[in-house]
């Protein structure tokens, strides 16, 4: 596939995003563009502002200003519960599987916001581990299965932009491999994905571009095909 990124339309445009938790100023002017159908990662050390960037998109930080436009619509100032209804699905870092809900109830919880979401059989095909577990309490699944469930429930909703916050955190390599396969399949299906990742080896196998964040801004953008030339720089950024 030719790299048509430049001709594709921008789906998400973040300009000079500032975010605050109470008194502390966490994001200092973040600029990010995500085009339709891309997989983009946010890399950076702990506390660089990756998760806050995602939470700002969803409107769940204390205060934010600047501009976040999704398919041309400004998200800053929009009522929190309306943002996901535009077609943005959020998979939080802590996975957010509800312990008082069964696996099925967790899967069916997020309301459908657009037509064209995946059906439950398609979801089971993508994550066979979830099949037949419907009545299990959500939090009794293994960590990897909970991660799959957290992704799966968003796929049903018809959201076309998916925010994945550290999907591989704390998981065994074999499960990380499975999640990677799933994310690649989602990309083939045309989902646009923003991924926060500490594990940049994982990120390199699925992403088109990488934004590097440090102390609340984006300090660099590296296309995946230029990753090899930029390894030294990246090691300095990430301190690995």
């Amino acid at each position: 596939m030719p790299d048509g990124a430049t001709v594709k339309t921008a789906m998400l445009e973040i300009r000079d995003l500032q975010a605050f938790y109470g008194e502390s100023h966490v994001l200092h002017g973040v600029n990010i563009d995500v085009r339709q159908g891309e997989v983009v990662t946010l890399l950076g050390r702990n506390g660089a502002g990756k998760t806050t960037t995602m939470r700002s998109i969803m409107g769940i930080v204390g205060k934010r200003n600047g501009s976040i436009r999704f398919q041309g619509k400004e998200l800053i100032g929009m009522a929190q519960h309306k943002i996901p209804r535009l077609g943005i699905g959020y998979v939080p870092e802590e996975r957010g599987i509800f312990s008082s809900l069964s696996v099925d109830e967790n899967l069916m919880l997020p309301p459908v916001v657009k037509s064209g979401g995946m059906t439950v059989p398609q979801i089971y095909e993508l994550f066979p581990n979830l099949q037949g577990r419907g009545t299990t309490q959500g939090t009794r699944l293994s960590g990897g299965e909970q991660q799959m469930l957290a992704i799966a429930r968003i796929l049903r909703t018809g959201a076309d932009l998916i925010l994945l916050d550290e999907p591989t955190e704390g998981l065994a390599p074999v499960i990380i491999e499975q999640i990677g396969v799933a994310v690649r399949k989602l990309k083939q299906r045309g989902f646009t994905i923003v991924l926060v990742e500490q594990n940049f080896r994982f990120a390199a196998t699925i992403a088109d571009r990488h934004y590097v964040m440090e102390e609340g801004h984006v300090v660099d953008m590296i296309p995946n095909d230029q990753l090899a030339q930029n390894m030294d720089k990246l090691h300095t950024y990430l301190g690995v």
Binding site: I60, Q80, H81, K82, P92, L109, P110, T157
Partner: peptide, 8 residues
């Protein structure tokens, strides 16, 4: 999180 799924 429930709010972030689009529920008021």
């Amino acid at each position: 999180l429930v709010q972030a799924f689009g529920i008021n």
